[in-house]
Design a protein around this nucleic acid. Sequence first.
DNA 1: ACTAATCTTTATATATTCTATCAACATTCT
DNA 2: AGAATGTTGATAGAATATATAAAGATTAGT
Lengths: 150, 150
Amino acid sequence: MWISRRTDYATRAVLALSLAGGTQPMKLQELADRTAVPLSVLEQIMPVLRTAGVARSERGRSGGYRLNHPPGKITLETVVRLFEGQLAPIACATRKEPESCSMMCGCSLRSAWEEIRDNTIDLLGRTTFADLAAGAAGPWLDSDQIEPVD
Amino acid sequence: MWISRRTDYATRAVLALSLAGGTQPMKLQELADRTAVPLSVLEQIMPVLRTAGVARSERGRSGGYRLNHPPGKITLETVVRLFEGQLAPIACATRKEPESCSMMCGCSLRSAWEEIRDNTIDLLGRTTFADLAAGAAGPWLDSDQIEPVD
DNA sequence: ACTAATCTTTATATATTCTATCAACATTCT
DNA sequence: AGAATGTTGATAGAATATATAAAGATTAGT
């Protein structure tokens, strides 16, 4: 239970934008409705995605968000890392600057944590939002995607 | 970064007891020294392991803790679950009673979270403390293990 | 019996993080 | 000019994690 609400929200938002096609920007309000994320929270999350180059925004009356790259170029790892930081399950097993172990033995637990870390990163890195979009189902795919927003 | 301090401490303690052999109980104070865990925290952690049947204790002057089963019968999963609860990375991907998804589509993200969950549980379930003890190295294995405590 | 050593249990304080909301601001289009 | 939209920063509230301390219960040894 380590994926925070924000990370959950962010991945939902990127999936929603992936499904939308990107021919026109999607408003925060609609994104909030589709992903069931509070608008006020999206207001904090989307700028992070924008700054990281994952999404792109337009302001003003016909503004909104769209992806900055094709969904196939955006991995789950990219988005999750933005909000979770280190993906190792424990500080002594990070790839960069692991915290030194204060235990009185060559602690073999670290190998186990590292293996979990590698499995996790591998899967997140292999999964693109094109994959996720292909696996999605429901109301969006049929009509809403084409229907104009206004 | 989802393994809490308590879980870390608990796994260290079980590893320490695994390395000790179990011919005599180990005092909380010594366990604290070997694992670099504050004694006051071990006082909370060890009863949990005891109640769960992982460890067994003896009180009084020559008391202390030892494992209740051979290390090969105790998996990392058992200990981690005691302190972390659900192992799924997110509430919608638990094996029992997953939280329903409020998103407006058949959310394909869940499959990814489930895959991470399964990888993680599989690895934790396969790893016993006998495996970990075999991989350990350092001062304990040479002398301390045999040396009487008092 | 008494005492000392040890585990047991409970209460509590502190810090940290997470979550959500709101308000003021900047930009764009009509 | 005005309305709709994204941008930013402040903040409050809740939940969780962590550590400490104190009082109790049990056992071993004398």
